[in-house]
Design a protein around this nucleic acid. Sequence first.
DNA 1: GCTTGACCTTCCAGCCATGGAAAGGTTTAG
DNA 2: CTAAACCTTTCCATGGCTGGAAGGTCAAGC
Lengths: 149, 149
Amino acid sequence: MNIGDAARASGVSAKMIRYYESVGLIPSATRTDSGYRSYADADVHRLRFIRRSRDLGFSVTEIHNLLGLWRDRSRKSADVKRVAQQHIADLRRRIDDLQQMADTLQTLVACCAGNDRPDCPILANLERPGHAVTATRKKRRPRSPLTQR
Amino acid sequence: MNIGDAARASGVSAKMIRYYESVGLIPSATRTDSGYRSYADADVHRLRFIRRSRDLGFSVTEIHNLLGLWRDRSRKSADVKRVAQQHIADLRRRIDDLQQMADTLQTLVACCAGNDRPDCPILANLERPGHAVTATRKKRRPRSPLTQR
DNA sequence: GCTTGACCTTCCAGCCATGGAAAGGTTTAG
DNA sequence: CTAAACCTTTCCATGGCTGGAAGGTCAAGC
């Protein structure tokens, strides 16, 4: 199985497979006599694991840990859970940051006439951040349905 | 006013001021005889505008547009509003992506015993994405209080 | 004057995960 | 035999910074 086949089968581009190999996320592939990388089903399996992890936003470093736990038959599920929870916390921080930006901008947009006149509260706020809009204390977003326990 | 003073006064690091100059976001600063960059209050004012825009997540390209509108006394507020609205849409896309990751992970975490045993639904899902968890239809998050009109 | 330390200058490299292109070798079908 | 579809390595670019190295400038204190 050449790299292109492994790429199609796993959903990881050939480029990224080579990259993952170069940074040590996956072991060096065996080579044919002519130097082509050769892959087996187990390799594709691992690549799919990586792909799915990336889709869930894990960094290469985190995936490295996850792969270690995956391979370790005597792992403790608590270790996996901790990695996942830390990642969730990270995602939530990023969500909160973006949400605060969006909220502030939404407030400003709502105040902007959006017509042919030059007066614009959005520019005014960028120029000199107003107190009311900026200083809103950080409100917790309501938990989304899926995250409720 | 040297670059360090401008940095302190604006909240933009000296490094970034040079960077913004190099990419054409701000005009080249005037120089002293010895080659030091020299800044006036108007420059600091502009840097603060940039800082605030970055804090709201605008890209350098978008800030370039915003600065143009800011300078243009005959701008239409509708133009500013459109830029802001597009940016809000972008923020919301990113939030939704992250939120979906967090939701999926939260579901998995909730299913994981988190004990000394190796069985782990999180790893199981990474290995072979389960249908129930992955295929949840995209649910709209409720609007946060600030974004309600 | 001379030293010291806080400035300033430019240039270069790295981060992260990825895409692209160049320049060449290999394999396979027709 | 040839064409096209592979594969290989290497370098470059992205965005928005941060850091460092090597060197010039300036102000205060001796």
